[in-house]
Amino acid sequence: MTDSKTEALSSTLASTIDPILQRPLAELGYITSARTKRLGAAVIDVLLPVPGPPGHALIETVTAAARSVPGVRSVQIRHELMTDEQREDLMNRVRGEKRPVGGPGSSTYVIAVSSGKGGVGKSSVTTNLAVSLAGLGHRVGVIDADVWGYSIPKMLGAEGAPAVIADSIIPLRAHGVSVISIDYFVPDGQAVVWRGPMLHKALEQFLTDVFWDEPEFLLIDMPPGTGDIAISISQFVPRARVLLVTTPQPTASRVASRAARMADRVDQKVIGVVENMSWFVGDDGKHYEIFGSGGGADLAEATGVDLLAQIPILEAMRSGADRGDPVMVAAPGSEAVHAFEDLAARLVETRPRIRMHPELRIG
């Protein structure tokens, strides 16, 4: 007969979320045995899908869950690594057939965050927008497709190495956001010198080989301009929408309009404009528009879309990015935080109604 403490322990572990695959442990088969002994000692046998930091995180999660059970005073974890066959079976159960995220049959809303030029804060907007969407309760992924200027992992505080289970890459997570970047696959400080076909293949792997688990939103931090990556995105994810980022400076907005024309040529819809670095607030409380004004509004009018947000300059946002803290952590309650929260809410409203099987017809 199973005692009440063991039943409570098993129930708690079953509903505990795996930090690797973000699924309840009951679905994954990691826990092969869980029981309580005399004096409140819990003994748990765990199969680890991967070694290293991800495996350690799983052990810590299981230990913390067990300690939360009333009457459990100590926890002993006995673990071993899954075999190749067990890992293959695991991914077949949770993933099934590989298919590109955002492709046919996918409900993921893919947004390419684009600009015509570098230096407008596109990666900062992508990072903080992703965290804001996650803060609204949505499942969010980010692809850092700026292969020459990758910076999302640092800004998001998601540094390390992705785990690989069977032939699926597991994205890193931070602040409720899953992220993959070329930064994880090149030596530190090495420049990426790739031609179009290599870029195309890397992006295909990010969309297909990464276990995204069908997030509600996938933000793609695009490189500046209208080159190979933009063309590849239009081929892999033709339903992707485009969010344009510019500054108030007229020159920047004119260059960003080229990204809008690129989207139009490949039949991708521009859903709005974000004006970054719109102003800063001085010690006297006044707004200072050091990059001018009107660039975002002009771009929105020329493109026929709404200006969705104006993001102020905030020193805490800059310093936070260097530490891996989004602005919600670095400056909670600030004007920038409210701007990103409003932007996230407005983007949620732009989600299209997607017919999952467009080949089906009635009548």
Rank of each mutant, 00 (worst) to 15 (best):
A202R: 02
P197V: 03
R95M: 12
P19I: 05
L172R: 15
T12W: 00
A34M: 08
I180Y: 02
D183C: 09
A64L: 05
P49C: 11
R318A: 15
E85P: 00
V62N: 02
F206I: 03
G55T: 01
K201V: 01
V210W: 02
I59F: 00
S168G: 00
D89S: 07
T251E: 11
E275H: 02
V245M: 11
W279H: 15
R355V: 15
L314G: 05
A112C: 12
V46T: 09
L314A: 12
P162T: 11
T350C: 03
G160N: 06
I17C: 00
A41S: 13
A344E: 06
H287W: 00
P224C: 06
D167L: 00
D284H: 04
L129Q: 07
I229F: 03
H338Q: 12
R23P: 08
F236M: 12
A166C: 00
G103D: 08
S123F: 09
A161S: 12
Y184K: 03
G294P: 09
V186P: 05
A336S: 13
D283S: 13
G333E: 08
D3T: 13
L81F: 10
P54Y: 04
V94Y: 10
T12P: 01
A112Q: 02
L39Q: 15
L207M: 13
V110K: 02
D264Y: 05
Y150A: 13
D283I: 03
A240S: 11
N276D: 06
P70H: 07
L343M: 10
R323Q: 14
R318T: 14
V177T: 10
G105Y: 02
I17H: 00
E216T: 12
Q310M: 06
R35D: 04
Y30T: 04
M222H: 08
G196A: 12
S114C: 15
F291I: 12
P358G: 13
R265E: 08
P223Y: 04
E216N: 10
F291Y: 15
A41R: 15
R195F: 03
G121V: 10
T350V: 04
R99E: 07
R93P: 04
V142C: 08
S278L: 06
V281Q: 15
Y150G: 06
D264R: 15
G119W: 10
A345C: 01
D264N: 13
V177C: 09
F280L: 11
S10Q: 14
A330P: 13
I229P: 04
R254N: 09
R93M: 09
D284A: 05
A256W: 07
D322Q: 07
V273N: 05
G176C: 08
H357A: 14
M91S: 01
T6H: 07
H357T: 13
E27Y: 11
V131F: 04
G96V: 09
R67V: 02
R261C: 06
G55D: 02
S10N: 13
R67N: 10
Q268T: 02
D89P: 00
